[in-house]
Design a protein around this nucleic acid. Structure first.
Length: 253
DNA sequence: GTATTAATGACTACGGGAGT
DNA sequence: ACTCCCGTAGTCATTAATAC
């Protein structure tokens, strides 16, 4: 676990994260207690009904990389790990999705990839940019349909936790401070889109998330988009006319 | 490198309040 | 009474961190 710095932004977020975790524990505990109450094993549920979760725990500011940091990070990775990091930054796909991606899931001609088993349980299509298409095409050269597109140098699949140390080392070499997690690469992808004014609905579709979740994480990165949308939608209420109001003298205000 | 635990992301279902 | 919207509860999957 990262150490908390009491007065820094990281420290405040660490505190928020602890409170969010406490809320989750409370949720699980309350579910168990409610079950016991429904089964007649508790006389009353009043005690835990009075416990309120911490407020303001859902507003974490996501950590993301600037384009320059992302380039440094890619360059600092070993070749096999570099490919999966690069792909994460270009597609926003999760570590588990990338490490399971097979040749048959990638359509170079249509420039799409299919995630057959996403976290939400539903398959989804990932749009590939020219850069992402070229990256995957290079990876897939000479491979058969069932091969993993992004495997380790020893041709074994990237396993659980295999990303942690290489990414941490790459962050050190690339002078990325604070270091970023693999999931942060997904946030970086979405943040780049948000900062370029891409609508939340489009970002949500690209990530396979709900629009509400995306808005929570990335809306603050797109103030220009929100402002433009509001201004465009509202337009003018009335044309300016000659006012029948007299401007007050400064001394009268 | 692997196993385990903690933390987080993200979904659906549901209930309450506001509006009609 | 009904519908819609929004927030919360509950849950599961995934990722991160750590111990060995």
């Amino acid at each position: 676990m990262p150490s908390c710095h009491r007065y820094s932004q990281a420290g405040r977020d660490c505190k928020r994260a602890r409170r969010a975790s406490a809320n989750r524990v409370l949720t699980v505990l309350r579910a168990a207690l409610n079950h016991a109450y429904r089964e007649g094993n508790a006389k009353t549920d009043e005690a835990w009904r009075r416990v309120k979760p911490f407020n303001g725990t859902q507003a974490a500011r996501v950590r993301y990389l600037s384009d320059e940091e992302a380039r440094r990070l890619i360059n600092a990775c070993a070749p096999d790990f570099r490919a999966i990091v690069h792909a994460a930054l270009l597609t926003g796909m999760r570590y588990g999705e990338l490490s399971a991606l097979q040749v048959k899931d990638v359509d170079i001609t249509a420039r799409i990839a299919t995630v057959r088993h996403s976290k939400a349980g539903k398959p989804r299509t990932v749009i590939l940019t020219d850069e992402a298409t070229e990256l995957l095409r290079q990876q897939m050269l000479g491979m058969s349909g069932g091969s993993l597109v992004l495997a380790r140098a020893d041709e074994q699949p990237w396993g659980k936790s295999h990303q942690h140390r290489p990414l941490r080392d790459a962050c050190v070499h690339a002078a990325i401070t604070p270091p970023i997690s693999f999931h942060g690469l997904r946030h970086s992808f979405a943040s780049r889109l948000a900062m370029r004014g891409v609508p939340m609905a489009v970002i949500a579709a690209a990530l396979g998330n709900s629009e509400a979740i995306c808005a929570r994480h990335y809306a603050h990165l797109a103030p220009g988009y929100i402002a433009d949308t509001v201004r465009l939608a509202l337009g003018r209420l009335a044309e300016p006319t000659n006012s029948n109001l007299t401007q007050l003298r400064r001394s009268a205000v």
